[in-house]
Design a protein around this nucleic acid. Structure first.
Lengths: 362, 362
DNA sequence: TTGAAAGCGGTACCAC
DNA sequence: GTGGTACCGCTTTCAA
């Protein structure tokens, strides 16, 4: 009965009670402060818990419900989920840390993760590390401080030990594309070595004996794995590896161009190339074009749009970014759901797609 | 003094006090419940507020600080930001709603938004609507319920009126790439009509009089605007528009292929084409390639990787996704910071890049 | 069925 | 300098 009158907010002035002078740095636009369950309860003349019940679809007397629903509509109330989750001790959100979300492989992976996340009723937070360990650490800390239920990470090349406390505290964590360093955790990887081996074997099968390899820096797991596949394929064909045919630098148009020029103008030039990822492939194509002359055979790791439209089409070892993202996210939610089975390391196979560039004879 | 002993958590059993039987659907892995400031305060034998001070870098006596820092380290405490933000009435997070994050234009835009967001100390949440209004509405509601400080939206084609309550409640909102329907809000757009006009004028300048236009469905703002530019350019060159040369369907390889075939096999076939976005351009290129024969001239809206590597290179009207994202995010944070100036509609100019395909004579 | 009160994990205000 | 206490907005417990 105490609530029959005083339909307006029963509380005293909220927010900024004192020193109302200058606008605060943030939250200045905050128009009429958002109505809360208390406001709704007051307006409806019921207890706050009944409002909560209605909002959560629990049972209340139909009549009471009517009044509350009306008050909710009138006030334009919408529950503050963050408050609810705080009380419940969960966040219904997961964080995704990539190296660069604008990179086709990773944005495709993101879409898949996003789909699974939303399907599980969670929200996805994303951040790019730019291959910078400090930045990775920083964004992971930010996610962790928000108490995300889980993390999916494309780790930069260094230790992920800083994650131990979080993992121990129950934050599900899955690594994608590259394994974590220094900790044991679920990991989804492409079959980098196998894919590269197949690709290079394809070239040796066509009779190539001198094959240039252009990869990324050795610190990057995938780069090293793909180099391993290359080396194994050569060994399998009884070809001695020649260090002069291997380039493992941070790729730029300049470094790739220089490497290509160096190899091709050597005494015993390669008749074919294997490029370590799509970014490198782009640079390689530009370099070869600029150079002119006959184009060497090429097999590239990573498929890319228009690979089939070039002349010749580019033969690739394709990895399935979407299924990598999906697999990672599904495993993550299984963990979040309570699956505490042994750590998994899942390898996704690659797909070899001949399109012409890899079928050029020596 | 009351706190000297009882160094362990002073509270009784937390969480799941009753019915401890089956694991809850979520939060099951939650190992040792995360330590709180209370735990730290207890262990350090100080008041909770002092812990808060240390965590927030405020001044406390060096000696006290030492003890607290030690306790924090020992317990592995990390502040629950969500709780802090709840109290402070803000969330330091913004939501980004796209149509498809895997699309190059949008993933590049995302990277820019992400960079600005992180620079402003906020977290970015992302979700794709898949061009589905219901889905868009749903994810926006989810973001809004989390009390994001702001929203950046690539709106699907329908009304965004549902956002009015949120905007009025102070959620900063910026639309990108397409304007919102039914509400007045900040909007960042490319100069779609102008860019298309320039592109088509380039073709008429080379003497083309029959130019095919392949766009997306008319419901999509950018599609209609680009068609407008096409029409204006024709008018400017004194060329009568021919409806038979305009295709505005939901693009698939089939529809685009059919349109191209239809136009090219007509009595008076086009000698040039203008394609409305990069996805369509890909389909167009595939269609023309399949068809064989001489390739008509082409100017495409949207730049794309390898456009310069095709033969001939593809002449494009490029829009700057990164600067669109940056501009949108910067405006958003200005709004969040309190800027309540009049609604802005910013047009970003496009850049015309001739590469060969647009310079083929009729 | 309903609601008062005690939390969730922090921060703000204000005495001590 | 430090700590008590009210409070952010919601859920949970439990008595009425």
């Amino acid at each position: 009965m105490a609530n029959d009158e005083a339909a307006e907010s029963p509380r005293g002035p909220r927010r900024r009670a004192a020193g109302d002078a200058e606008p605060p740095p943030r939250a200045a636009r905050r128009g009429a402060a958002r109505p809360t369950m208390r406001d709704v309860a007051a307006k409806a003349g019921v207890g706050i818990k009944s409002v909560s019940r209605v909002v959560n679809g629990e049972y209340v007397r139909p009549e009471t419900e009517r009044v509350i629903v009306a008050a909710i509509a009138e006030l334009g109330f919408s529950r503050n989920d963050s408050a609810a989750m705080l009380r419940q001790g969960l966040s219904a959100s997961v964080g995704l840390v990539l190296e660069d979300i604008a990179e086709p492989f990773q944005s495709t992976l993101t879409r898949a993760v996003e789909a699974v996340t939303l399907a599980n009723g969670s929200i996805l937070m994303t951040a790019s590390s730019g291959e910078d360990p400090a930045r990775e650490h920083k964004v992971v800390r930010a996610f962790s401080a928000r108490r995300v239920d889980g993390l999916i990470i494309v780790p930069a090349a260094h230790s992920q030990r800083y994650l131990l406390p979080d993992i121990q505290a129950g934050v599900a964590t899955v690594f994608v594309d590259r394994p974590a360093h220094g900790i044991d955790a679920d990991t989804i990887l492409a079959d980098n070595a196998g894919g590269a081996r197949d690709g290079v074997a394809h070239l040796t099968g066509f009779g190539h004996r001198r094959i240039g390899f252009i990869g990324d820096i050795a610190e990057i797991f995938t780069a090293t794995e793909r180099l391993r596949g290359y080396t194994e394929a050569l060994a399998g064909a009884g070809i001695a590896a020649d260090p002069a045919l291997v380039e493992m630098e941070r790729p730029t148009d300049d470094t790739v161009g220089a490497a290509v020029a160096r190899m091709l103008s050597a005494a015993d030039p390669p008749t074919a190339f294997f490029t370590g990822n799509s970014r490198i492939t782009m640079m390689f194509l530009r370099a070869v074009r600029l150079r002119g002359g006959a184009r060497p055979a090429l097999v590239a790791f990573d498929d890319f749009e228009l690979a089939d439209m070039l002349t010749p089409g580019i033969t690739v070892v394709a990895q399935d970014a979407a299924s990598m993202g999906r697999t990672a996210a599904e495993l993550l939610f299984r963990r979040i759901g309570g699956d505490d089975g042994p750590t998994q390391r899942i390898h996704l196979s690659t797909r070899f797609i001949p399109r012409g560039s890899g079928e050029i004879p020596p």
